[in-house]
Design a protein around this nucleic acid. Structure first.
Lengths: 202, 202
DNA sequence: AGAAAAACTGGACAGTTGTCCAAAAAAAGA
DNA sequence: TCTTTTTTTGGACAACTGTCCAGTTTTTCT
């Protein structure tokens, strides 16, 4: 393994640990010392691999984008026609159970991006990639199921995105207060959301 | 003015200033010294009126609830039948323009409530009050316009809430990157959202 | 007026934060 | 092997944080 590869691997490892720390304690309450301790390295190392705390956090966002988006795109794009929304529901349910804290972190970082301009770019990238995903689904829907829009495509995409994203956010908030059967409620309600979104448009 | 009234007024003033500070810099980046300076008082005063930083922040959330909810309830509940969603759109548009940073703060605090249990209660209160508002609108809709639900009321409320709230959140994020005509886009898209929500259910 | 209570000040305090660096340790190349 | 480069350490540093309090000022009440 070349020395550069090794450095990149360590960088990736640190990003991973930082992500875990961040997901656990949130942007406002995490420190470089937390991350260093969690990673089992000294504080100085973090500044050796990342110029500043901000750069480390940017790397965290960027890496998160890669991981989650790839799964989402793979599952949803390759789903058989008609199984489309079911596939989406399945992926989201699994992800909400296993990576609940990562989703929470995603909303945390989105909010922070409204205060810290440097985060804005990264967050924008992820959001536009999600928009593209919805766009591709819409195109398929129109082609394979004679689905037609009553408004321009951009508005439709924004609408669908808002609804789904808002739904995830409310789920996370709800789960804190009523953890019992939260996933089951989500599954049922999400199905209805999809029906609402994709029947009135036809 | 009795001494107690005066104390309450000062308390209210400090809460107001703290809210402004918080709205400007965000939960993660605001300090008691910021708030004291902004309020034109010394640091010690904050501890005289509020036992801790947490108590001050709780008071901020609680006060926010009062202000925004009252306007929302007044405008929407008293709107003439049929003008219902238009009234809601009007209130939201105005509020998004004038109190943009307050709305941003609301999402910040919601996210923080997922990390800081003490905030959970306050946030839950506001959310359930918003749910009640939607519930009342639905009841009116069913009575005055023979509107009927295809699912149980709780699910419908959650769905509507998620959609509207998600929509506001996306608007705030969008506005950062594309400030031009953001309000106009919001107005149009919101109208369509309401149509989507309240026609497929009939 | 004087006494009691409330409001307010400025700074001390211990702890934490991000940043930085001289020097040691480890790895790589000669 | 010895030299050079890369990696790692542990701690110093100044700035900032929430908390607290001994006094001072202001207000209120008798």
């Amino acid at each position: 393994m070349t020395t550069q590869k090794k450095a990149e691997a360590k960088r990736a490892y640190l990003i991973e640990q930082a992500t875990a720390c961040l997901a656990e304690k949130g942007y406002a309450h995490v420190s470089l010392r937390d991350i260093a301790k969690e990673s089992g390295v000294s504080l100085g190392i973090l500044h050796y691999y990342f110029a500043s705390k901000e750069e480390l956090l940017l790397a965290v966002i960027s890496s998160y984008k890669g991981r989650f988006m790839e799964e989402l795109e793979r599952e949803v794009i390759t789903a058989p026609s008609g199984e489309w929304s079911a596939a989406l529901a399945r992926v989201l349910c699994r992800s909400l159970q296993e990576d609940r804290k990562l989703h929470r972190l995603w909303y945390d970082l989105q909010v922070q991006s409204m205060y810290v301009p440097a985060f804005g770019e990264q967050v924008k990238d992820i959001r536009s990639r999600l928009h593209q995903l919805i766009s591709r689904m819409l195109v398929r829907l129109q082609r394979e199921e004679q689905y037609s829009l009553t408004i321009d495509e951009d508005s439709a995409i924004s609408l669908i995105y808002s609804a789904i994203d808002g739904f995830l956010f409310q789920f996370l908030l709800d789960e804190l207060q009523r953890p019992e059967e939260a996933i089951a409620r989500f599954e049922q309600a999400f199905a209805h959301l999809m029906r609402t979104l994709f029947s009135s448009e036809s």
